[in-house]
């Protein structure tokens, strides 16, 4: 555990992973997109719109995985003061928000031809929208303090509060949805056949490795800005000390 707490050690591993993740992501996209768009069959119910789900579902999976990852990182940060865990959470949040937005946009683009309207208060779309606001709240809170360390700790607590609430919100929205709407053709609920699973898994793998690769880039940038901040602070301290000595 503590081997990973050291930023240098952590980044050595992360940098070793980077080319593999980036390369694998590229390969999976190059195989997955043609299969998703061309060689996989159209669905008998949804027609060609099923191809949108090969983006919508992986985006939804990323949205959830990234949030659980952020919560785990925040817990590690709060319990063991593990600085890298917090950095992972902080660097992941904007990506999680973008994946959530993609999930919403693709869901809406699927909904317009299937439901005849861009927005339906479908249980999944509604939960996704709430998750999007939770991401925005985390990003806004982490950024709201003069002292970056305070923002880190407040945001970490918020991530944990959020992860306890996510299942409660899901349960509530599902209950509310069945109360108000008869089940119709629902996003992703329709049966998945084997032909659809292959492009789905390929795109999930592509999205996942893509996230890891970009995360490493973002972690490098975050570490550098911490170094810059420290260098600035020590510079100020040095100049103050010399000024006092003169």
């Amino acid at each position: 555990m503590h081997k990973f707490a050291n930023p240098t050690q952590f980044m050595r591993i992360a940098n070793a992973i980077y080319p593999w993740a980036a390369g694998l992501s590229m390969i999976l996209f190059l195989i997955g997109v043609p299969i998703a768009l061309v060689s996989s069959p159209a669905d008998y119910q949804q027609g060609e719109t099923v191809r949108i789900l090969y983006l919508h579902v992986p985006a939804a999976v990323m949205m959830q995985m990234i949030y659980y990852g952020m919560a785990a990182g925040s817990a590690a940060y709060l319990i063991w003061r593990h600085p890298m865990a917090n950095l992972v959470a902080k660097a992941s949040a904007p990506m999680g928000a973008i994946f959530t937005a993609l999930c919403l946009i693709c869901g809406m683009l699927w909904g317009q031809p299937m439901w005849g309207t861009f927005w339906v208060w479908d249980a999944r779309l509604t939960s996704t929208l709430i998750q999007f606001f939770i991401y925005l709240g985390y990003i806004a809170l982490a950024d709201a303090f003069e002292d970056p360390e305070r923002g880190d700790r407040a945001a970490a607590i918020l991530a944990l509060v959020g992860v306890v609430n996510v299942p409660i919100i899901k349960f509530s929205v599902n209950w509310w949805n069945t109360l108000h709407q008869p089940a119709s053709l629902s996003l992703t609920k329709s049966s998945m056949t084997g032909d659809m699973l292959l492009p789905l898994f390929l795109m999930m793998g592509a999205f996942g490795t893509f996230y890891i690769a970009v995360l490493v880039l973002r972690l490098r940038a975050e570490l550098l800005s911490a170094k810059i901040r420290n260098a600035r602070l020590s510079q100020v301290a040095v100049s103050e000390a010399t000024a006092a000595a003169e």
Partner: peptide, 10 residues
């Protein structure tokens, strides 16, 4: 009209 924007935006 729906499939291509989804892929484009992504």
């Amino acid at each position: 009209l729906w499939v291509w924007p989804a892929y484009g935006i992504t």
